[in-house]
């Protein structure tokens, strides 16, 4: 595993256009080992597109994304799968596989080169972390949306990669599981892995992220620690909504509240 703080993925001058419209413009960003990077911004700001570009799913029209110094487009699917995992927003499964089978699918990139024990251990750890033990025997297609999201998270964790992308992992989850997922992300970062997470809840991002990238209409409006990025002026301007920022505890983690009557 790379030293904490070293850049694993580097995006330089990344622009993406779709139908002549700029989705992303001139993004410079590093994904670093041992930290959680949160991508936030209003709907349509380009968060998911940026995640696709950083994870190698989409290639930018301009600029370059490198993974460990090599252009990310040069990697084969299997090489990439051993370096980064991705939790997508849509996680429908076409056939009624059992939950345990779905989680085991996360081990596919390691089919050759890992032992049965490695696989079993990775699956057990992932199942515990995502809190899906009680679902293992069920059919994936019979689960609720939130349960499906957690099983998909377990699959991503079982992949055991140094870089983990999570696209709105908390969207379908209840309050407790939202916190637990972010704690799992925290744990991954503590192991020296890099976590990139798209979240809508600014307070959640403020509480758990090491750095926040605030996107506005495809541009990087701000990049820094939660305390630096989350100012009332900036959040109000980007989201077009008056907010008040409370600072919690000694660390001054920001909590964002809309101004209400």
């Amino acid at each position: 595993m790379s030293a904490p703080g070293s850049a694993l993925i580097e995006a330089r001058g990344v622009s993406v256009r779709l139908d002549g419209r700029g989705i992303l413009t001139g993004i410079d960003l590093d994904v670093r080992a041992g930290e959680i990077l949160a991508l936030v911004g209003p709907n349509g700001a380009g968060k998911s597109t940026l995640l696709s570009v950083l994870s190698g799913d989409a290639s930018p029209n301009e600029g370059e994304v490198t993974l460990l110094g090599r252009p990310i487009g040069d990697y084969r699917a299997l090489e990439l799968a051993r370096l980064r995992s991705v939790l997508t927003q849509a996680n429908a499964v076409s056939f009624p596989f059992r939950v345990i089978e779905i989680v085991q699918m996360g081990r596919n990139p390691w089919m050759r080169g890992s032992t049965v024990d490695d696989d079993r251990e990775a699956v057990i750890r992932a199942v515990e972390a995502a809190d899906v033990e009680h679902l293992l025997g069920r059919r994936f297609t019979s689960l609720s949306g939130g349960e499906q999201a957690r099983v998909s998270l377990a699959r991503v964790l079982a992949q055991s990669t140094d870089i983990v992308f999570l696209d709105e992992p908390t969207a379908a989850l209840d309050l407790r599981h939202q916190e637990e997922v972010m704690r799992v992300a925290r744990g991954l970062a503590a192991q020296g892995r890099a976590v990139v997470v798209v979240v809508h809840d600014l307070s959640l991002a403020g509480a758990y992220a090491d750095r926040i990238a605030l996107l506005d209409s495809g541009r990087l409006d701000a990049l820094g620690t939660p305390a630096e990025v989350m100012t009332a002026e900036r959040v109000s301007r980007v989201y077009g909504l008056e907010v008040r920022i409370h600072r919690l505890g000694a660390s001054g983690r920001p909590v964002v509240l809309p101004l209400r009557d």
Partner: peptide, 21 residues
């Protein structure tokens, strides 16, 4: 067979798991 299993997760997820879709 094993790769066809992964395809049930959708093409994007299968690719993330190393399948040359």
């Amino acid at each position: 067979a094993q790769r066809l299993d992964l395809l049930a997760l959708g093409e994007r997820n299968a690719r993330h798991l190393g399948v040359n879709v």
